[in-house]
Every structure is written in C-alpha cells, then in structure tokens.
C-alpha cells in the first residue's frame, strides 16, 4: 500500500471519463471533526480493501442542510439541498453511501421532492452486505469475548427503520452482543439530534448523553458501537462524564469492521 492513500474525487474521475460504482458522501462531521475523520478513514479503507470503485465530492460537497431543516430553517435547507442536487446530478450520481445517518436520511428522504433521486445507503448496510457476500471477514480477534452494545442512531433506526444491518455487522465478531435497555425502536437519543449538537441544552436535571450512560453501565459494555458521528461525540463525552475512559471504548461500526479485517 502507498504511504499516502489516494482518495479519488468525482472531479478527477469525471475528467478521465469514469463513473464510480458508488459515491461516498463524507458529511461535515466526517470531514472536519477529528474523531469522526478516523471513522471516515476506516470506512475508506474498507472500500479500498474490498475493491469497490468509489469517489468523494471533496471540496464540492456541502452540508446537506439537515441541521438547518431540523431547526426550522427551511430556506437554508433548500438552498443547500438544491446546490448539492445540482452537483450530484451534474455527475449523474446513482448510488450514495454515507457514514452519517443525518446525511443518509436527508438525501434519501428529503432530496427526491427537490429533484435529487439516488439510491442511498448507510455504511452499516454496505458493511452488512459485504460480510454476507464474504468480502469482509468478521472474525473475533481483538473483540473476542468483549461485551459490545450498539447505540441506535435515531435517524437510522426510528427515522428509517434500519435496525438489523448494524447488528449483522457485529454479530459475527465472536463478541458478546448486549442490547442496551432502551434499544431499537425504543432507543434513547444521544442528545445531539434536531440541531442540539450546535447549541447548549435547555435547563434540566442532566444532559441526555449522561442519561444514556446509565444504560451503557447497566449493560456492562466494554465497547459502545455507534453508527453516527454525532452519537460518537455524545457517547464519548458521556463516557468521560462518568469517568470510564479506561473501561469503555466508543467505536463506529466502520472502525470495528476495519479492525476485524486487519485494516486498522
């Protein structure tokens, strides 16, 4: 492998007259947030490893408008959406994968009425498919005997009914999957959705991610598996709040899969 991993952009591919099999929509958190960048790189390694021809938009990607829409700013949302749709349609994109449930939900559900029609999948769905096809192994290794709990992202689970794909990606790890008390359709939010990520919470007894830690501690999880960069931030802050950084690790499904395949 080269010391520098080349990530193809749509502009480069298009200049060569090529089309990718799938566009990797990185998202703002995956692009800028230091912790989430590691998720992005882990997922890019998986895509490289299985030989899927992919590309990113790079500097042509812009916020999907999700936080603006959830906060009630429909103008800003539609400005963002229409700009992105113009870029995506310009490259004749058909299929999109993203590691962010917010981007996933917005592009999948809210872009069609504005003229953006794509097949959109979440990265845990792609990973589950690749495991099923035998292209990714998911052997225990580092995870053997560990207790792993999956925290459902609202916009993947309740928002779009995807509960099984992330669990499929964890099932074959030889690890001990322990469901959190509030899981699947009854999952408790991490506290970041609806643009809460970008503001201080209203006065209350405690923060939502601290409440969520009670479920994590009760499940005695060694690893909290997440599928959303915002959940990642909130769960990490929660673990710090309960001072369990030594005992509990928060990892994205992409990072777990990459590690199980010797890519990390």
């Amino acid at each position: 492998m080269d010391t520098l991993i080349n990530i193809p952009t749509m502009a480069e591919l298009s200049a060569k007259g090529e089309q990718p099999d799938i566009l990797f929509w990185v998202g703002c958190a995956g692009s800028y947030d230091e912790r989430a960048q590691r998720i992005t790189r882990a997922f890019a390694k998986i895509l490289k490893h299985v030989g899927i021809k992919f590309a990113v938009l790079g500097t042509e990607e812009a916020c999907t408008g999700d936080p603006a829409k959830r906060a009630g700013n429909e103008f800003l949302f539609q400005m963002q959406a229409m700009g992105n749709i113009e870029v995506l349609n310009g490259y004749a994109i058909k299929k999109i994968v993203t590691a962010c449930p917010h981007c996933f939900n917005t592009i999948k559900n809210e872009y069609p009425v504005l003229g953006g029609h794509y097949e959109v999948i979440h990265h845990t769905q792609l990973i589950a498919d690749l495991i099923a096809e035998g292209k990714l192994v998911a052997e225990g290794g580092a995870f053997k005997g560990k207790k792993i709990s999956f925290h459902d992202p609202c916009y993947l689970g309740r928002g779009n009914g995807v509960y099984e794909a992330p669990r499929k990606a964890l099932e074959q790890l030889d690890a001990d999957l322990v469901e959190l008390k509030r899981c699947k359709s009854n999952g408790l939010c991490c506290g970041a959705g609806g643009a809460q990520m970008f503001k201080e919470p209203e006065p209350g007894k405690k923060d939502v991610n601290v409440e969520r830690m009670e479920d994590v501690l009760e499940a005695k999880a060694d690893i909290v598996a997440v599928g959303c960069p915002f959940c990642m931030t909130m769960m990490n802050d929660g673990v710090k709040h309960v001072e369990k950084e030594q005992e509990i690790t928060v990892l994205d499904i992409a990072e777990i899969t990459a590690r199980a395949n010797g890519l990390l």
């Binding site: 952009t9 800028y32 790189r41 916020c63 408008g65």
Partner: peptide
C-alpha cells in the same frame, strides 16, 4: 451562528470549504 456557518462555509462549523478533503491527507495507512 450554525446557520451562518452553513450559509457561508457549507458546514455547521466554521471551517473553510477548501479544507473538506483534509481528512485524507497525510499517512494514515
């Protein structure tokens, strides 16, 4: 502030759009 960032920088945080691909830079193999 978040709205202004989305409008001006195409991201909810105040990062430059030109830095969007920075995650891929360096040796992360």
């Amino acid at each position: 502030a978040m709205f202004a960032n989305v409008e001006n920088n195409a991201a909810p945080w105040k990062y430059a759009p030109a830095d969007r691909l920075n995650w891929a830079q360096g040796d992360w193999s």
